[in-house]
Design a protein around this nucleic acid. Sequence first.
DNA 1: CGCTTCCTTGAACCCCATCAATGGTGGTGG
DNA 2: CCACCACCATTGATGGGGTTCAAGGAAGCG
Lengths: 225, 225
Amino acid sequence: MHTAQASLNTQSIPNAALLRTPTASRNTPELGTTRTVAKDEEVFAEGDRAAYFYKVVSGAVRTFKLLSDGRRQIDAFHLPGDIFGLESGDEHRFSAEALGDATIIAYRRCSLEVLATRDQAFANQVIASTMRALERAQDHMLLLGRKHALEKIATFLLVLSERLTEDGHVDLPMSRIDIADHLGLTIETVSRSLTQLERQGVIELPAHRRSIVLRDKAALQRLEA
Amino acid sequence: MHTAQASLNTQSIPNAALLRTPTASRNTPELGTTRTVAKDEEVFAEGDRAAYFYKVVSGAVRTFKLLSDGRRQIDAFHLPGDIFGLESGDEHRFSAEALGDATIIAYRRCSLEVLATRDQAFANQVIASTMRALERAQDHMLLLGRKHALEKIATFLLVLSERLTEDGHVDLPMSRIDIADHLGLTIETVSRSLTQLERQGVIELPAHRRSIVLRDKAALQRLEA
DNA sequence: CGCTTCCTTGAACCCCATCAATGGTGGTGG
DNA sequence: CCACCACCATTGATGGGGTTCAAGGAAGCG
């Protein structure tokens, strides 16, 4: 059992040298090793031994679960600074793949346990981070269970914009299929909803479909429900 | 920001005297105070100061979020032994209400922090428990985002039966509305799905609609997808 | 320049929501 | 003890939001 995929962003663990140092593999090789992952390459699969957890350095990673017939639920996208793949049990309960070419650092799980046992402040930070990950999961349950397509898209764009935006310009690291499998929709509905928002003048969809300009954030917030 | 509602069952925190002792209010009054809550009474509301977190002693509690127009998502039902209302921020991000008459223990949040700082083993247990809560949330996201009504009901019954069953006989502490708002369905669909399972001989619905007999768990597992 | 891949758009359908009414159970008071 | 009532659950009929199926377009890459 047991993944704790949801992102634990390192910003919130100021005391944790282990998690903060993207160059840990060079400075303290025993704590983490850098690894590059190609687009759509697997980092780990559901059922793998969870000997390591990971931090995104560059690029982005999706963690997801599959049903027997192939239906997929992406629980989170992990951006630079995020931790994923930390488990309470000894198996990964999710799969993880790179959205595009990515660089990640792998940490031995036992490192965490050793450090958490020695350093109480660090342990408290890990608790807080895990709780924040849980809270994000809970917000997402509200979205999945009770929001309509347009509300889901609006929420998604607003959440993304908090991390990826430069004055309203969002560069999407993921495809429409990924968005659909994150929001519990189909690619067609995602596409139609985005088109609708564009027609309403709320967003703009540049030609190369991997970026979105948020024209009217207030309108998105109203749509969020 | 930030709730960490999902249940942290005390079974999994063997070393944590604070969490394990239902009679803490008598033995160590500074750690927790017992409180009884009537059916549908509020324990705390979204936005309240999160000075306390809680453990269920008897009865059951729902934690939920509301959208502006009243749509509700119940993120979890908390049964005896479960912890809820633990926040990383200083406000409750959910509301909590008793399903029926219930007894709970309120702990000051600072007690947890003090204890976690002094006792590394305890801190590690809290991390593990929070991660397990997160994992349950992740399973529920798969259900909400990608499962059909019948699959949702089947999963729900199987999960419940792991905790509440005595040889297949499940006593539901919650109403159909609560089930619907947990699974992202309507009461009508919940009712129809249960009826369908009964017609298929998979379950039995006794006259007083608050219990269910699981006749064929294997069939439920097949339906789970 | 053609191919592949991804995205968009259209049309038909279906699952579940919605609207509406009935049924059943437990509680209350006569 | 029974009749009435309120609440909850069930059942039926209809409709709609989103999926499914299918085709067309647009961008990137060899």
